[in-house]
Amino acid sequence: MNAILQATGLVQQYTTAKSLFGKPGTVRAVDGVDLTVNPGEVVGIVGESGSGKSTLGRMLLGLEAPFSGRVSYLGRPMPAPRSAEWRRLRAQMQLIFQDPLAALDRRLTVAAQIAEPLDIHRIASGAERQERVAALIHRVGLRPDQARRYPHELSGGQRQRVVIARALASQPRFLVCDEPVSALDVSIQAQVVNLLRDLQEREGLSMVFISHDLKVVRNICDRVAVMYLGRIVEEAPSDRIFADPRHPYTQALVSSVPKAGAGLRGRIILQGEPPNPAARPAGCAFHPRCRIADAACAAKVPALERHDGRLAACLKLQSNQRTAA
């Protein structure tokens, strides 16, 4: 099976210049991530804010060039952002992000917004363009009369449907959804997630689904990668990661999702400060908040290694394995 998208050794860092004469500091938002997305697969990326998951998503789409490492799409390297080739490639990959109102031009009607990719990539014009727009509106579950509406006249869920319709207009093969439902009411979230899943199945889309919310991810993803301070700490098939998380951070996250019948029993409350990429702890970045960390964890950075049908980065797991062997 040939991967649709492959990322190796992705690093992104930003310089924070204090002023003209200040010494610039660097912040590593993403720090060495490998990720593969296979055709028709939905990969979830989970993490707290500051874990670098959105930056990773933007690099996967080629919206920003990585500081080091590379992304290849269908075996070819990602072109430089904003080059002509890059712009053409946009027809094949799309981003859906958190705030649909900000994503839409408040001066254009729903139909005009959805038609935008068709115009930009000269896919369709005239009657065909209108037909396509009508079909897209139908497909995302909007009413035909809403085509003439403006974004502010719609509800949050409807707006996100418009964004989805626009993303699908150019028939892309790869979609990155960055917190697509976080801004929506809980009652609407499930509808939009279900819509995304239906569309994904029907069109055979490959998708990266970024969220801080494990409940949402569980519903839609085939495989999940958990990020902490710019690194993947555990990556496994969806059912496995939820049934049997191994990394202490994943365990804490999974324990915070209520289970049917069990509620929140056995919940692990994370201690300490939320992660700050500007002040990365030495050794395993998670050790200040980890229940099982010891002195070794503050000294050595754990590598992401194969462990019982998954990838995990924890010194404790590795030493357990070694003593068991």
């Binding site: 904003r82 712009r87 799309q94 981003l95 900000a102 994503a103 031009d105 935008e116 930009i120």
Partner: peptide, 17 residues
């Protein structure tokens, strides 16, 4: 930075558009 313009760039529109 965040809004509709970034989105349209992301759709593949040229700067002049």
């Amino acid at each position: 930075a965040q809004g509709y313009a970034a989105e349209v760039v992301q759709l593949g529109a040229s700067p002049s558009r």
